[in-house]
Nucleic acid binder design. Structure first.
Lengths: 219, 219
DNA sequence: TGCTGTGAATAGATTCACAGCT
DNA sequence: AGCTGTGAATCTATTCACAGCA
C-alpha cells in the first residue's frame, strides 16, 4: 500500500478532504472522482490514483461516500486529533499567527509562544503569555508539543529549529526566509513569502519579455 | 534557451540569488556550482542545469562571478526593479504583511490596502490608509499596481482575485485557504498555512504508524 | 587540473485507457 | 451504464557523466 508519498500528493489529499467536508456540510453523500477533481482543481485520474495509494475506498459504478472517505482521509492525514503547537518569534508574522483562528479551528492549537525580546516576555498576545527562550525546552516537553513554528529572523532560525527538535517536536513549520533541510531528522516545511513573490515577479518579467519579443517581431 | 521553466526551477534560482547576494556582501567574487549548491540545499548539477536554462554564465575551470551572476539572475527574475503591490483584506495576516519590512526591502512595495470593514476604512495601518473596495479598480489603475495580494476570507477570495485581475494586476498572491487557478489568465500563487501544517500532520501521523508497526513486529 | 555546459540516462509524477465490479 | 482501481504509456524533472574550455 503506502510506499513514499510525494508532498504534492499529500497536499492534494488535504484539498480533497476540504472539499469532502464542504460536501458533507451540504448534505451530499456520494461523490465521483470527477466531481471531486473539478472542485479541487485536479483530474479524476489524479484523484483516483492519489486515493489508491492508501487503499480502495470507492464503490465501482457509484463513487465515494463523502462521510466515510472524509474520516479515512482525516486518519491518513492525522487530522482526527488536535496537534499541540509552539511558536517561536512573536514579531509581525508570529503575532498574526497567534491571532489566526483558523489554526485552532482546524486542529492546530498553539499552546506556547516564545521570544527573546524582554519587552515582549510576560505580555499576553491574543491571550497567550510570551515566554523567554530559556523556558523552551522544558515547556515543550511538559506540554507535549508536537509541532514547532519558527517565525524569527533568518539569522537565528536554524538554531531555533535545532532547539525545537532537541526539545522533542516532531515537525517544524518555518516562516524565516532561509532554506532549512530536516534538522536532527525532524522535517521542516518552509513558507517563504518573498520567494513566492519572486516567483510571481519572474512570471511578470517573462511575460513582459515575451510581449516585447512579439512586438519586435510584429514590427 | 528559455522554453517553459518549472516553478521549482524558478524557486531555486531565487535561492541562488540570495546566496549570491550573501557572498557578494562577504566580498567573495567567484563561486562554483558546488559551493552554491551546498548553500542553497541543491546539487551542483542542479545548479548548472538551472542556470543553463537561461544561458552560459560561468567560466569553465573557474566558476561563476558573483556580481555579474547576481545581476543576471535579478534580470531573469525581474528583481532589478521595484514592483508595486496592492493588498486586499486587512485582517490579522493582511496587517502583518503591511508591517513586514522584508517586502519593501526586497523590492515589493505595498502601495495600497483595501478592506470591506467600515471600521477599518480610513484608518492607517503601518502608515498606509485603508481604502474601501469600491476604490480598488481606480486606485490600482492610477498607481499602476502590478501584483495583488488576497488576504480575505476564502468565501470572497475568488471574487477579489477577479476584481484585481480586471483592474489590471499581472499576478496574484493568495493567502486565503482556497485553491485558485489562474483568474482571467492572471497567475495565482497560493500560500496556504493550514495546508502546510496538514502536510506536517501527515508526516507525524505516518511516522507514528511506522513506529507502531515496528513495535508490533519487534515484540 | 578544475569546473562548466549539456546530451544521455534515470527516476518520478501524471495521464491514459480499460478490465472489473455494482 | 457508470465509475473505480490500476498497470502501461507518457511526460517532466533530476542526476549522471563526460567532452571541452580556462
Amino acid at each position: 500500500m503506502s510506499g513514499r508519498i510525494s508532498d504534492s500528493a499529500v497536499r492534494r489529499l488535504s484539498l480533497y478532504l476540504r472539499m469532502l467536508r464542504d460536501l458533507d456540510r451540504s448534505g451530499v453523500e456520494l461523490v465521483s472522482s470527477r466531481e471531486l477533481a473539478e472542485r479541487a482543481g485536479a483530474t479524476s485520474a489524479q484523484v483516483r490514483k492519489d486515493l489508491s495509494l492508501f487503499g480502495s475506498f470507492g464503490k465501482r459504478g457509484r463513487g465515494y461516500e463523502v462521510g466515510p472517505l472524509s474520516e479515512t482521509l482525516e486518519g491518513i492525514l492525522g487530522l482526527s486529533r488536535e496537534w499541540r503547537v509552539a511558536l517561536v518569534g512573536v514579531g509581525k508574522i508570529g503575532a498574526a499567527l497567534l491571532g489566526y483562528r483558523d489554526l485552532r479551528d482546524r486542529g492546530f492549537g498553539v499552546v506556547a509562544a516564545f521570544d527573546v525580546d524582554a519587552g515582549k516576555i510576560g505580555t499576553r498576545v491574543f491571550g497567550l503569555e510570551v515566554l523567554p527562550l530559556d523556558d523552551l525546552e522544558r515547556t515543550i516537553r511538559d506540554l507535549h508539543v508536537e509541532i514547532g513554528i519558527v517565525a524569527t529572523p533568518p539569522e537565528v532560525a536554524e538554531d531555533v529549529a535545532r532547539a525545537l527538535a532537541q526539545a522533542g517536536v516532531g515537525a517544524i513549520l518555518n516562516f524565516a526566509p532561509i532554506e532549512l533541510g530536516p534538522v536532527d531528522g525532524v522535517p521542516v516545511s518552509t513558507v517563504d513569502i518573498v520567494l513566492e513573490l519572486e516567483g510571481l515577479s519572474y512570471l511578470l518579467a517573462a511575460a513582459r519579455r515575451n510581449a516585447d519579443a512579439a512586438e519586435e517581431e510584429g514590427g
